[in-house]
Design a protein around this nucleic acid. Sequence first.
RNA 1: GCCGGCGUAGCUCAGUCUGGUGGAGCACUCGGCUGUUAACCGAGCGGUCACCGGUUCAAAUCCGGUCGCCGGCGCCA
Length: 432
Amino acid sequence: MQGYQKISEALKKSEGERVKVRGWIYRTRSSGKLAFVTVRDESGIIQVIVEKGKLPDEDFNSARKALIESSVEVEGTVHEDERAPNGRELHATSFHVIHFAEDFPITKDQSMEFLLDNRHLWLRSRKLTTILKIRSTLTGAIHEFFRNHDFYEFHPPILQPSQCEGGATLFEVNYYGGKTYLSQSWQLYAEAAIFALERVYDVAPTFRAERSKTSRHLSEFWMAEMEAAWFDLKEVTEFAKKEVKFIIKKILEKHEEDLRFLGREPETLKEMLDKKWPTIKYREALEILKKDGMEVPFGKDLRTIEEQKLMEHFDTPVVVTHYPKEAMAFYKPRDPDHPDEALCFDMLAPEGYGEIVGGSQRSTDINELIESLQKQGEDVEKYEWYLDLRRYGSVPHSGYGLGVERSLAWICKLDNIKDAIPFPRTITRKYP
RNA sequence: GCCGGCGUAGCUCAGUCUGGUGGAGCACUCGGCUGUUAACCGAGCGGUCACCGGUUCAAAUCCGGUCGCCGGCGCCA
């Protein structure tokens, strides 16, 4: 007999075949001479029938005694039975407990706070296991997409001396007695890289010390960013749409059942792939909102409530471009044809999930950059290295960042972004 | 930073309005049961009522403060 099999494979065996599986006890019930123990592994769950007399008494007693989450090795024969959860079950001829678990603290009654306190154990739940599998497919798809398009993976520093996004707050780090900060974007460094590699991308952690307390914010999250020489706004927005569609396609290929389990109908996503995703200008968005009775003056960024209202008109992601220059970060260039607008964009997800991508063409006008930095109260001297990029063979270029957790939360239809990352970090949570 | 909600057994909650010996279900332990589906039946174990102070003969309950967590807004991926 060969070695251990995945439970998903054991479930495919035919009547009477012998298999060996190992995993963790998912549920257990017992009567006097019969115990039902469901065992889970990474791949699935199988019901094991442990019947007194059909295996050593020692094994039977272990099976009766072992609590939920005990680790076990089971050998037996596969039998079809309509009473079994998957229509098939395992009749044990041996049942070995590798470790008898203590009382597992997580039971059927659960609160958000308790599950977050016990995140290290809650990871084993079907919900989080499923999400983590899809997350792995998502980041894998990002790597595949960019490599397919001749991008190099480029690694920026995580410790950075200055900020890049205006307004956002930085985490300060004691750096040999001096100060440095955790990265809130790779962008400035990526801009340096395009003069060498032309097309670069990265999937990396990002840190924002914003005091946001919502189901859409994390203090530590992952961003998939790209930066490409010679791309203009039009090209980069279409490229972003292509990337997100590719991600969805890859997830649909592997995870239809997983998505259903999470409450997301795969059909909804499939339909989006066939549709054209609109690009509208910020000014057009204001017009739409005005018809809905929401008057937003030009110059203000769209707020959550306005984004949600806007997205009621669409059933696919939408790219919004040309936000007002004054509200934007210093590196976003003025549109030469409309000087009050910036050549930038956001991609908004439907169903209230909000912004999942943000990006722009980059300003190549060194004087405009200096002026914007000064206006934001920045110390221009700290950005000298960045300004050098505009002094030696400057070229038009663009880039964007995709929020991994926000995208995942939308694709999986999660209630809370915290479930899109294994160990969420928020303003009030850094344990476990 | 602003606004709101919550905090009682390991977990989920009732009890607080109207002060008077702290409860239920689940989990766990023991016993019973040869087909359970987050099993069932019986018994048992289990408490700093978040913390500090005040009012009162008496406080989980009323008053003041503190802390913790969750959510919404602003800001952002």
